[in-house]
């Protein structure tokens, strides 16, 4: 027998295992890729949902807000709000509602509703996130009929009939407010007195503009402003979406092309403000805790007062209208009335 002749009928054991190892590795790799893709898609969907709802303000906003308790309907809320809502309806229905427009510095078309009673005072009322000029302004009958003011209700950018493609929580909106103030002065003349009312995002907007407003603005009334957008985002992610703040990094990475979370710091903007300001805060507010309002109040540079109401977010006036009206009347008589 030729000992050099190899027995090709019998393969060495080592060679038979190599093809199986390679294919097994490929299968595991494919599975890992698919699992990673699914995880990334899931995370991306969550970030997209949050970003789309709260920055791009797209059609899914109402779905996103359904998971946020302060925006949920309840019988108790309806009972509290309905009398004021009826009053607002009657105020609005008795007047000729005028749709007015202005142009923002960056060319965005701004729109709003004006209720002109020919008074020497105009209140510019800034709504909160997901609101609009067509929404309820429950302070309207009190400010309009009892304190004798015209009402201008702008649609914030990317809300209502105003243009714009993203919500900047006061960053661009504060510039827009300056345009509206100038609009009121053009309409009524330089003797017109102006009062700014803002609710949450509207309040932050008013406060971020406070140091830049002209002398015509005699008083700012803010309800539940936040201190910074980053603080709000962390709080919302944790409280309402049960997500750790590490996801904030994804939002920041995703970012808007036009501004970043770090650009919206209300506390930085109010130190040099001089216009008298009345701060309204709900002690039972779980949407934007009172501590945020207090932080802004503490840093505010002008004459100020903080009025606390034992109420949830958005229900201050409905819960204790007497206290709120009394506070406003006090400041109105000092700084607005002749």
């Amino acid at each position: 027998m030729d000992q050099n002749k190899k027995d090709v009928s019998r393969r060495p054991e080592g060679r038979a295992k190599e093809p199986a190892k390679k294919q097994g590795f490929i299968m595991v790799l494919c599975a890992a890729v698919i699992i990673c893709a699914v995880l990334l898609i899931g995370i991306k969907n969550i970030v997209d949902s949050f970003y789309g709802s709260f920055v791009l303000h797209d059609a899914n906003t109402s779905t996103a807000l359904e998971s946020v308790e302060p925006f949920n309907e309840s019988d108790q809320k309806t009972e509290l709000l309905s009398p004021l809502e009826t009053q607002w309806d009657l105020y609005r229905d008795a007047r000729l509602e005028e749709r007015v427009t202005a142009t923002a510095d960056d060319g965005v078309n701004l729109s709003g509703l004006l209720y002109d009673d020919g008074f020497p005072v105009t209140v510019i009322a800034l709504h909160g996130f997901d609101g609009s000029a067509e929404g309820d302004f429950l302070y309207g009958p009190f400010l309009g009929e009892e304190l004798h003011a015209n009402l201008l209700l702008p649609d914030s950018r990317d809300h209502g009939e105003s243009g714009g493609t993203c919500v900047s929580y006061g960053y661009f909106e504060s510039d827009d407010l300056l345009q509206w103030v100038n609009w009121v002065i053009d309409r009524y003349g330089n003797d017109q007195k102006i009062v700014i009312y803002g609710d949450t995002m509207g309040a932050a907007t008013a406060l971020m503009a406070a140091s830049r407003l002209p002398e015509n603005v005699k008083l700012i009334i803010t309800e539940s402003p936040y201190d910074s957008l980053e603080h709000v985002a962390k709080y919302e992610l944790k409280t309402w979406y049960s997500l750790p703040s590490v996801f904030l990094t994804l939002l920041q990475w995703r970012g808007s092309d036009e501004y970043s979370l770090g650009d919206v710091v209300v506390t930085d903007a109010v130190g040099s403000a001089a216009i008298p300001a009345l701060f309204l805060a709900g002690t039972e507010d779980t949407y934007l805790p009172e501590t945020m309002t207090r932080a802004v109040y503490d840093d505010y540079g002008g004459e100020k007062e903080l009025v606390e109401v034992d109420a949830q977010h958005g229900l201050l006036y409905a819960t204790d209208s007497e206290k709120v009206e009394s506070a406003i009347e006090g400041w109105w008589s000092r700084f607005v009335q002749d």
Binding site: T86, L90, D93, A94, R95, L96
Partner: peptide, 23 residues
Amino acid sequence: VPDRFQGEVGEAQLDALTERLSR
């Protein structure tokens, strides 16, 4: 404009309409 809760036009709504016409 009908009352948003009752869905009907009552005296208050008619008074509001009268005021709007007056303006």
